[in-house]
Design a protein around this nucleic acid. Structure first.
Lengths: 156, 156
DNA sequence: CGGGACATCATGGGATATCATGGGATATCA
DNA sequence: TGATATCCCATGATATCCCATGATGTCCCG
């Protein structure tokens, strides 16, 4: 079960957004009645989100670095220090922390984009702009997709 | 078991289309009571479809890229962000998301074309036009079809 | 070999459930 | 005590379920 699809929801006067029902199903299946958000490592104005499964992966990746290495400290400061675990209210909504909202330039609408083990939250127009470029890039990157040898999946 | 043949079905006032029974049998055999749709990586006005088997291949290909690489983000945005997992209703129908319908110019009819491990969905007239050209091209490309090597698994 | 009974399938429509959204009321915390 | 967050309910839109229909294909039995 993974995050898939794109959904744009409104932010009401109290700052609440509905997390798409299909995304809620994923994190709940992972044992969390909520989501985990953190800032992006890629350049760009958006928020990263996930459930406990990918959050654990991040922890493991960080644990592979030396405990006192400066790289580890920097990555931890971003990925853990600025992260937030938000609980769903009884209708499946969350309130985005101000820091993360500002980071992504989100005001009254938020676009949720599924990316497999995790998802992203964008200001809708910013995502449109990003996607136009991503589509071109994806066609260029097509050859980076190599089918596993085991299965003879026909690439395009 | 693979997707084979061409079928054109109607889209009703609620936006529902019957997925051809023979296609349903394939994805159900793969363990999914539905289909997975996504945009084409190559330029073109149609929708790609498959079952879990091919979808897993895509996921594995993406997973081989570093988690925060920009290439992975772009490819995921297209192949997962714009994709959808649709469940069959009790009569084997699905509702095509507006984004994918627009992409293919589909309004009131949809042509399903089997392509082995996956299939495509076209606006019927667009497919007719494409097929006329594909037929010519296929004859030109005839010599690209090589017999499999005796032992080693040759190229695709 | 022929024909009738039956199953499968695409399609349509009414009833029901789910979802996103808004707002009032209550709880929590500094 | 004021501000923020949480709970609960209402609502409209959308999707889902369930049943009906007709057309096509399949099977079986005479």
């Amino acid at each position: 079960m993974s995050f898939r699809g794109r959904f744009t929801n409104k932010i009401d006067s109290k700052g609440r957004v509905s997390v798409p029902a299909k995304f809620r199903a994923v994190t709940i299946a992972q044992g969390l009645n909520g989501v985990i958000l953190f800032p992006p490592l890629n350049p760009g104005s958006f928020v990263e989100g996930c459930g406990p499964a990918f959050s654990d992966v991040i922890d493991q990746m960080l644990d592979r670095l030396d405990p006192f290495a400066p790289e580890r400290q920097a990555l931890s400061a971003v990925l853990i220090g600025e992260s937030a675990e938000l609980s769903f209210d009884s209708d499946g909504r969350v309130i985005l922390p101000e820091t993360l909202r500002n980071l992504a330039g989100i005001t009254d609408e938020a676009t949720f984009v599924g990316m497999g083990q995790r998802f992203q939250i964008w200001e809708p127009k910013a995502y449109d702009a990003y996607y136009a470029k991503a589509l071109e890039d994806a066609q260029k990157y097509r050859d980076m997709l190599r089918a596993p040898a085991a299965q003879g999946g026909g690439g395009q």
